[in-house]
Design a protein around this nucleic acid. Structure first.
Lengths: 172, 172
DNA sequence: TATTGTTATACTCTATAACTATA
DNA sequence: TATAGTTATAGAGTATAACAATA
């Protein structure tokens, strides 16, 4: 448990991180922006999956996932085959072309990081990676377990955040 | 200097960090989105400054800064007084209202982090903060010192990135 | 009736380019 | 002629809501 000042510093770094993200984004090929790359990376990482699963991994609304997936499918980097078990669903699979693109992207981003982080030790890189992974997990946990285990301040609790990855359908 | 696999993991975490950013963004008041908050935080942090300086700190184009600043100025959170030394410039200053808003935002975000990171030690929070600061610095350095100290691969060097924070003016 | 996925629309953040006003 | 800042326009990413097809 840290103090107020620590948290303020951390939030400031969150905000400043945008610059790093933009810098990385600038090296992406224009055909494959960051959002598309994220789709490919996750499918490579976790294997074939359905839209809903991918949405969960991306932690964005399924409508957003649908757009990204359409983009990469149009370019032949993934294929969408109907799920025989549930014909509403589609199974997403990386194509050989997609895998080749990923290899190329990986080499390119690693080369960039090797330049930028040339004075970082292997341990430091690993440490940052681990802490960022844990950060993400800490935020995920809350979403899964409920946002207010113990309201730290009196007053009305903030509205509970949706924990699905899709827009709630209006019952017609 | 780290290995390829380390860098791949790190890039993956960069991508996943978007989810954290969005979660934080969801708690911002709709009148003061993340971009506006960044402006206020930097002016509080570094004191009064000109647009160009703020652009540099935000690491975005000055046109973007101009938009954000207009937004917060319209709401009375900062004031823009003409610089007597250079009448093209404007000096940005936080107003009391702006400072009050910042206090409120700070309390709110710290409360959120305290919840999310309740099982993090003070040292861990400090470590993540320090590593993210160093990361940002490593990327900044490159922009300042030139992108290719020693081209690791033969072939044409990638186009040098602009190091100003504004769109290059076309000479009329 | 509920769920999976798609599409239409709107909003935020960003960059490029053209413009104004001062230097 | 060059610089500080503004504005217009365009593109990426996201969320909400309405919709189609299937369960």
């Amino acid at each position: 448990m840290a103090e107020q000042a620590r948290y303020e510093e951390l939030i400031r770094q969150f905000s400043a991180f945008g610059a790093v993200k933009r810098e990385v984004g600038r090296m992406m090929p224009s055909e494959c922006p960051a959002g598309s790359a994220a789709v490919l990376i996750l499918i490579e990482r976790h294997g074939e999956m359905r839209m809903s699963k991918l949405s969960e991994l991306l932690a964005v609304d399924m409508s957003v996932t649908s757009r990204h997936v359409a983009h990469v499918a149009e370019r032949g980097w993934i294929e969408r085959s109907p799920d025989p078990a549930d014909r509403r669903s589609r199974i997403l699979r990386l194509t050989p072309t997609g895998r080749a693109l990923l290899d190329q992207l990986s080499r390119r981003t690693c080369r960039m990081l090797a330049e930028r982080l040339s004075d970082w030790s292997d341990e430091e890189v690993a440490q940052l990676t681990a802490l960022m992974a844990r950060l993400r997990a800490s935020f995920d946990d809350i979403r899964a377990h409920g946002p207010e285990p113990r309201p730290p301040a009196p007053g009305p609790a903030p509205p509970v955040l949706e924990q699905t990855t899709r827009t709630p359908a209006t019952t017609t």
